[in-house]
Amino acid sequence: MTDPPELFPGFEARTISVGGGKLFCRVGGKGPALLLLHGYPQSHVIWHKIAPTLQDHFTLVMPDLPGYGMSSIPALSATHEAYSKRSMARMMVELMRQLGHERFLLAGHDRGGRVSYRMALDHPDAVEKLAVLDILPTSDYWDRLDRSFGLKIYHWMFLAQPAPLPENLISASAIPYLETTLAAWTADKSLKSFSDEAMTHNRHWYAEFARIAATCEDYRAGATIDYEHDRADRDAGRKIRPPLLALWGDKGIASSVQDPLQVWKQWCDDASGQSLSCGHFLPEEATEACGKALLDFYTSE
């Protein structure tokens, strides 16, 4: 299989040993450090459209989450610990320290958003400002599941089934499943928002059974250990300390809840936010509006 196309000209490609694994990342730009975390079923490539807007203002660090893209694949386990957002957040903090950034700006989309708000809860001194893209906290999603919401995020229950059921079923038709999933979460229910080059990257790594299994393990962690960590924080009254910006697509997944910002205000006293005209994939469907919102948030006093 040939290597996928280059989408980050001028950025350095690095693979860094962190916490017993290896994280692949792209690093480039200038200014304060900004860590960008992708979601499912994508990789760091989700940021390729928005990077040109941000790279003149920030030093961008764009890793692949463990198991995704070109990062190493942690072993699956009965506790799903390696795929907990707490474990992933710890790895990302160590990654940034190895790159010389003790404190940094942070944005996460989808699963990367879950790693991001967990990082802000567990490592508040490392996170200067936090942006979460088209998500609500994990425990809120599970606690709000009803018939209509369950149909919209059916994959949460499907992917969280015990191994190897979901990965076996997906791998039998991996690329059609990938393409159907991506299209279903866009505003126009198509792949038009994704560049051909980005789709080449997506298909490249999602064809590997071990990586499909890793993404399922990510959701198994979400249904178990991640939920428990969220509930423990809520029960203890712990909140997100850094300023938080919530962005969501008006036809995205988070918009299934009537007022996503009100949910985030229960988790963070300094929360602001807005909807954008798009589906779930803000950096690719609403690149200009998303870039402006992030830039305004990070550069405001």
Rank of each mutant, 00 (worst) to 15 (best):
D218I: 06
Q161I: 02
G39I: 05
H80F: 11
L178V: 05
R26T: 02
D196K: 15
S87G: 05
M88V: 13
M119W: 06
L165A: 11
A214W: 03
A286T: 09
L130Q: 01
K192T: 15
R111H: 08
W156V: 04
E102Q: 10
L121A: 04
L165V: 12
Y154H: 14
L23N: 03
L65V: 09
V115S: 13
W248G: 06
T138P: 03
C25M: 11
I175Q: 11
L121R: 09
P137T: 08
A210E: 15
E284D: 09
T79D: 12
E301V: 14
R118D: 04
T79R: 12
S84F: 07
S87V: 08
D143N: 15
P63C: 02
P41G: 03
K189G: 11
M199F: 05
A183S: 12
L36F: 00
A187D: 14
I175R: 11
G29I: 11
S190M: 08
S171R: 09
C268M: 05
T2N: 13
C268T: 03
G69R: 01
S255Y: 06
E288I: 14
T186S: 11
R238I: 03
M1V: 13
L133W: 05
S148K: 15
S116D: 04
C278T: 12
G291T: 01
P9W: 00
T2E: 13
R114F: 08
T79Y: 08
M91T: 06
S116W: 07
D250Y: 06
L37V: 09
R220C: 04
L7W: 00
P41D: 09
G67C: 01
F158R: 14
L145K: 13
P283M: 08
D56H: 13
H229I: 15
F149T: 14
P4L: 15
L130R: 02
L37N: 06
D226T: 05
M62K: 00
S190I: 12
M119G: 00
D188E: 15
A210C: 09
G39P: 03
D64I: 08
Y117R: 07
A82T: 05
F194Y: 02
W142G: 04
T53Q: 12
L151G: 15
W47R: 00
L23W: 02
K251E: 09
E301K: 12
G29M: 07
I240L: 12
S195K: 00
A131Q: 06
L276F: 02
A78I: 12
A172V: 11
P242D: 03
A174H: 09
L245N: 04
A107G: 05
H109S: 06
L121V: 05
T224N: 12
P164F: 11
A221V: 04
T287S: 05
L136D: 08
Y298R: 11
C290M: 04
L60E: 08
D122V: 06
A78N: 13
S255G: 12
W156S: 11
L178P: 03
M92Y: 04
I50F: 04
R203V: 11
S139M: 10
P74H: 11
D146M: 08
L182R: 07
D269R: 13
G29P: 08
L169P: 00
L159I: 10
K251S: 10
A286Y: 02
S43A: 13
A131M: 13
W205N: 08
